[in-house]
Design a protein around this nucleic acid. Structure first.
Lengths: 255, 255
DNA sequence: TTGACTCAGATTGTCAACAATTCAAGACGG
DNA sequence: CCGTCTTGAATTGTTGACAATCTGAGTCAA
């Protein structure tokens, strides 16, 4: 998130008000090419199209996206900071492959954080503010039913993030965001679609408890959601090991 | 931490055992120059020698350290991910200047996490494992008394990190590490040396409670430590605004 | 056959020149 | 005097060429 601020238009200091015409292209959809590429690769990884440990050669990517290698290099650097790829010195970038142990640790950490935030939210939030969360659950449900695994994972992550955001602690939200990214990768690599379909019901239940204001119970319900997600991981997923990078990435529609 | 793994010797895959002579310079203290530069700048910032918001021009740094601009560029990128500097597109890198609001958020987040980890540690740790923590407190005490502010802050951070590490949750430790880095910056910029001198006593007290195994009480003591740190911030510290970058950075001994 | 060495081919790391952007100072008209 | 536009120096962004490094196949002796 920190890095996301430094590129694109967020950083641009807007003048307090428009005084005459300043520049011609004030409305930039100039969206940074590096962000686009990075999102594209991220989608491919999170869509489960790329096997963990797969190498991402700079030149292949630079040809695929039609930009110079240095640009790709910068993108890979960014993805490395997001823990989606792993850069080994003089050897290149590879799709990250989180271990079982690491996955367990991530879920442990999330339970610690989300237990607390859920409790806070339950005590402070107004029912109307939960509308967004209900939407996420609905979106997630649709996604699973349509077999859109990638969207399902995204909606699931955004549900948790939105919930945390209601606790109004910026630092915790940033921290959780990182953990959620990592979780999304884990789900993409090792999650079981069938198991996922049971999640929306659990989230609906969680929201009902939140609305009733039962904070401790809500915290426990959140913990159960996370336990369920963790329980249904399968660390022996199969990937097609020799798929062509170009085909795989092109096959994934940009978000 | 993720990034720290990708440079230096950690990444190098050592052969399972030495078979004859492989390379001549097996013992490399070849330590990556970028790491050195990055540590140097970090020291200057955390030593409080550089004012928040100060610009870090690529060329000045490249002259100071005698390396090409691209190297500096990469270093600044890394420091940006560590939240020590802020990179604004087309405008360069600046020393980060966290706001009051942000500082409060950081401490809130840390209380949530460290409350739990302290409780876990108190329930599971053996007294002998606390030796390292006692050392940190001692080191911190010495540092404050000698007026070595930078070391004091470092020891303080490492105390908290070491405590968290005893809870054996890798993911939480990584997350806390980030928050501690940010806290160190905040203390360097806005902390009051006099107020800091009271900390070692508080930590000693905390450790005593941990040793007695009173987990809830320990968690509360940890919270009090964090509250005290937060309370004694002074957001109007004065910096010498026109110090020469070269002098300031050279004046700081590398760690 | 095994293990150590050698040597291309491929891939990543680094650099220095060039292009694009920002920022501050000055000119200009109202 | 205020706001706008112009201009140019300073700074950052980008590129393509070159250097350093890794990998793996092939060679050779034991």
């Amino acid at each position: 998130m920190n890095q996301a601020e430094t590129d694109g238009e967020v950083t641009r200091d807007m003048p307090p008000r428009q005084i005459g015409k300043i520049h011609e292209k004030t409305s930039d959809d100039d969206m940074d090419i590096e962000v686009v590429i990075s999102e594209r690769i991220k989608s491919s990884i999170l869509g489960g199209a790329l096997a963990p440990g797969l190498k991402l050669p700079e030149e292949s990517l630079s040809e695929i996206f039609g930009v110079s290698r240095s640009r790709i290099r910068s993108v890979l650097q960014r993805l490395a900071f997001e823990d989606l790829v792993e850069i080994k010195r003089n050897r290149g970038a590879f799709i990250a492959s989180p271990s079982i142990r690491e996955a367990r640790g991530i879920f442990d950490a999330r339970r610690v954080i989300e237990r607390v935030t859920t409790e806070i939210v339950t005590r402070t939030v107004l029912t109307i503010q939960l509308a967004k969360l209900h939407e996420r659950v609905k979106g997630q449900d649709e996604a699973w039913k349509q077999g859109d695994y990638r969207r399902g994972i995204r909606e699931l992550g955004e549900f948790h993030l939105a919930m945390c955001a209601l606790a109004h602690n910026q630092a915790l939200t940033v921290v959780l965001e990182r953990l959620i990214r990592r979780t999304s990768l884990i789900l993409a690599l090792y999650g079981l679609p069938n198991a996922m379909m049971r999640m929306p019901a659990m989230y609906t239940n969680l929201l009902a408890i939140v609305e009733r204001g039962e904070s401790l119970s809500a915290a426990r319900a959140m913990e159960r959601c996370l336990f369920t997600l963790e329980k249904d991981l399968n660390f022996r997923s199969i990937f097609s090991p020799n798929a062509e990078l170009r085909d795989v990435i092109h096959a994934v529609a940009p978000d």
